[in-house]
Nucleic acid binder design. Structure first.
Lengths: 346, 346
DNA sequence: CCTCCCGCTGGGAGCGCTCCCAGATTTCTG
DNA sequence: CAGAAATCTGGGAGCGCTCCCAGCGGGAGG
C-alpha cells in the first residue's frame, strides 16, 4: 500500500540487493530460483510497483503515446466516427501496454503553444495524428521532428507513415451500386475537399460514375463538412435538382440528408435513394436503415498503434503505409431491397 | 532541434553551470541579468526544452492527470455528453499546463488489470473519474488509494471530492414547467437508477410533481439507459398510456423519444409535449427544438481539473464538493410557445 | 592440486534534473 | 576602511531505476 517503496527497500526486506530485485522484476535469467521466489513474495506482500518515471529516465522510453486531434474539429468531434476511433486506439494501446495521452486542440493558437511542449519534452514515445487537413501546418512541423509519427488518414505529403481506408475504392463501389440499380440522376453530398478523405471519396465517386459512362452533373454535387447539419443543408440544395439517388460521403451527413428528404416529403428509397459512408451504428438504426460503405474504424486505430510502436522500437523504419479495404453494406435506403429492383425512371 | 540537449550542454554553451541554467529556466531571482539573457539566448538558439521525465523524478510530480471512463459505458460514450465533457476537461488541463491521459476501460477485466498499473506507477498526479455507478467497485478501490481523486457526478459514498450539477433541482424545474403549462398526464423516460444522476433526476421529477399535488403514475414511467435507442423504446412503452407530456432524463433519450412519437403519428408539442435534459447542441437542432434543462458541461470539466490540481498541490484537502446550478431552456417541444399557452385537457 | 569457467550476486555509474550549501564576489554599513 | 551583509555562482547529493562489471563460490577439466 505504501506508495514510496523503492527497489532498495524490497531488497532489504528480502535480504538481497537492488540489482537482484530488478532482475526478478524484469524476468531476467540469472537468478537463483529460491531467491527469486523470496523476492516475489516480498513484492506481492508489499504491493510494490516500480516507479515508471525513474525507469523512463534510464530507458528513454515512457510508454506514453499521444493522440492529437487538431483544431477546427469541433464539428468533427461530434461525429461519432471520432468516438469510435478514440475507442479503438485506446483499446489497442491498453493492450500494447501503452498509456494514451489525448491532445485536443481548440484553436491554432493552442496548437502552436502546446506543440513544442508536447513533442520535445520527452514524455511521448510517439504521436498519432488524426483529422489532418491538406497543407496542415502541424504536419509540416511534425514531419521534420524527431518523434515517431503515424497519421490516421492519408496525408498530402510523402515520407510519413500512415494508415488509411480505401476511400477511393469505397466511393467507386457506392457509385457502381447506384448505377447498377438503374438510377439516372445520381448526386453526391461530398465531404470537404480540404481533407484527403473528402477528396478521395469525391474522386472515387466521380470515377465510379464515369466508368459507367455517367458523368457527375455539377448541379448534383453539394458540399458538406462531415456534420449532420451540413448534410441537411447540402441535401436541401440538391433537392431542387431532382436527384433520384444521392451518395453522402459520411453516415452522419447521410442522416442529416435524410431529414431534409423527409422534411420535403420525399420517401427514401422510393422517391430518392440514399447511401452513406463509414458504417457507423447510426447508419443501422436510422429509418430506413442506411446502405453504406463500412470502414474498419477499430482496426484502423489498432494498426496505427501497432505501427507507432514498431517505429518506436525500431522494428520498422519510416514510412510504413497500410490501407484497409472497405465493404459495401446493402440495407434499405438504396432501394436494392425493393420488390422491383429496377426503380422507375422518373 | 537536437533532442538530446541537457542542462549541462546549455551551461557549457553559455559559459555557466548547470545550476545557473536551471535558475534561469525556472525564473528564479538570484541571477545576474546579463548572465540571464545570455543563457536565454542560448536556449532560444538551440531550441532546448527541459526533459520532463527527469524533472518529474526529482519533483515527484508529472503534470499528468488521468481521465477514467469505466466499463459498460459503450452506449454512454456514444452520448455526445461525453464528447463535450472530454473536450471541457481537455481544454482546462491544457490551460493548467497538465497533460491528459485517457483511460477507457472496455470491460471489468481490463479495468482491474490496468488499475494498479495506472495508479501506483507514479505517472499520474491525480485522477478524474466519470460515469461511476452506484456501488462502483472502482470507486471503492480508488477511495482508499493514495492518489488524489475527483469524481464528475455525485458518488454514492462519502469522503470523496466531486463536482456535479443540480440534477435534482433541474428535474424539479422540468416537472414544475410541465405542470404550469397545464399538462395532466405527465410521464418520464428516466435514466438508469444505477447512476446517481439517474436517481437524482427521477427523484427531483417526482418531487416536483408531488409539490404540485400530482403524483407520478407508475404507468407513466419508463426507464432508459441514456442511449437514443433506449429513449425510443421507452417512449413506445409509454405511448399506450397516453401521456400528454413527457420528460426525458437526457437530450439523447429525448431525441429517441421524439422518433417514437413521430412514428406513432403524434405531433410534438400539439399531441404530446416533450422535454429533455443536458442542453446539448442536438437539442437545439432537433425538430421541434427541444425544451431542456441545460447543465454547464464545460464548466463542470474545468472545475474538476482545477479541483484536482488543488488537491495535488495541497491547496485543498479532500473532500471538496461543488454543485453547479442548471437552467431551464424553453424552446418549442414543451408547447410553451404555442398561441394558447393552455393546451387542451384531452 | 591449480586453473578455468559458469551461475549468481552486489555495487558503482549514470540517466537529467532540482535542491541545498558553500565559496566567490560585490555592496553596504558603522 | 575593516567588517558584515547581500548577491551571485558552482558543484555535490540524490530522485529510483537499469546497465555493466567485478567478485564470490563451486564444479569441471588438466
Amino acid at each position: 500500500m505504501a506508495e514510496n517503496l523503492t527497489l532498495e527497500d524490497i531488497g532489504r526486506l528480502a535480504g538481497v540487493s537492488r540489482s537482484t530485485v530488478s532482475r526478478v522484476i524484469n524476468g531476467q535469467a540469472n537468478v537463483n530460483p529460491s531467491v527469486r521466489s523470496r523476492v516475489q513474495e516480498v513484492i506481492q506482500r508489499t504491493g510494490y510497483t516500480p516507479n515508471v518515471v525513474a525507469r523512463s529516465l534510464v530507458s528513454g522510453r515512457t510508454g506514453v503515446i499521444g493522440l492529437v486531434i487538431p483544431s477546427r474539429v469541433h464539428s468533427l468531434f461530434e461525429d461519432p466516427y471520432f468516438s469510435r476511433l478514440i475507442q479503438g486506439i485506446s483499446a489497442a494501446s491498453n493492450r500494447a501496454g501503452n498509456t494514451l495521452s489525448l491532445f485536443l486542440f481548440q484553436n491554432e493558437e493552442e496548437e502552436s503553444a502546446l506543440y513544442p511542449r508536447v513533442v520535445t519534452s520527452g514524455v511521448l514515445d510517439g504521436l498519432i495524428l488524426t483529422a489532418t487537413r491538406m497543407a496542415d501546418p502541424l504536419l509540416a512541423r511534425m514531419a521534420v521532428g524527431e518523434i515517431p509519427l503515424v497519421i490516421v488518414g492519408r496525408p498530402d505529403v510523402d515520407g510519413i507513415s500512415y494508415v488509411d481506408v480505401d476511400n477511393h475504392g469505397g466511393a467507386m463501389l457506392a457509385a457502381g451500386h447506384l448505377v447498377d440499380l438503374g438510377y439516372q440522376r445520381i448526386g453526391i453530398v461530398s465531404a470537404p475537399t480540404s481533407t484527403t478523405a473528402g477528396v478521395d471519396r469525391l474522386n472515387g465517386f466521380v470515377e465510379g460514375l464515369a466508368l459507367r459512362g455517367m458523368p457527375l452533373h455539377p448541379d448534383l454535387r453539394a458540399d458538406g463538412d462531415f456534420s449532420e447539419e451540413s448534410g441537411y443543408q447540402a441535401m436541401r440544395r440538391l433537392i431542387p435538382h431532382r436527384p433520384d439517388a444521392v451518395f453522402a460521403a459520411s453516415d452522419t451527413m447521410a442522416v442529416g440528408a435524410l431529414w431534409a428528404l423527409q422534411e420535403a416529403g420525399l420517401r427514401v428509397p422510393h422517391d430518392v435513394a440514399l447511401m452513406g459512408f463509414d458504417g457507423l451504428p447510426a447508419s443501422e438504426k436510422s429509418n430506413p436503415a442506411l446502405t453504406t460503405v463500412r470502414q474498419p474504424v477499430t482496426d484502423t486505430g489498432a494498426r496505427a498503434v501497432q505501427m507507432l510502436n514498431d517505429l518506436v522500437t525500431g522494428a520498422a523504419t519510416s514510412p510504413v503505409v497500410e490501407v484497409f479495404p472497405v465493404e459495401l453494406v446493402v440495407r434499405e435506403s438504396c432501394g436494392a431491397m425493393l420488390a422491383s429492383s429496377r426503380p422507375r425512371t422518373d
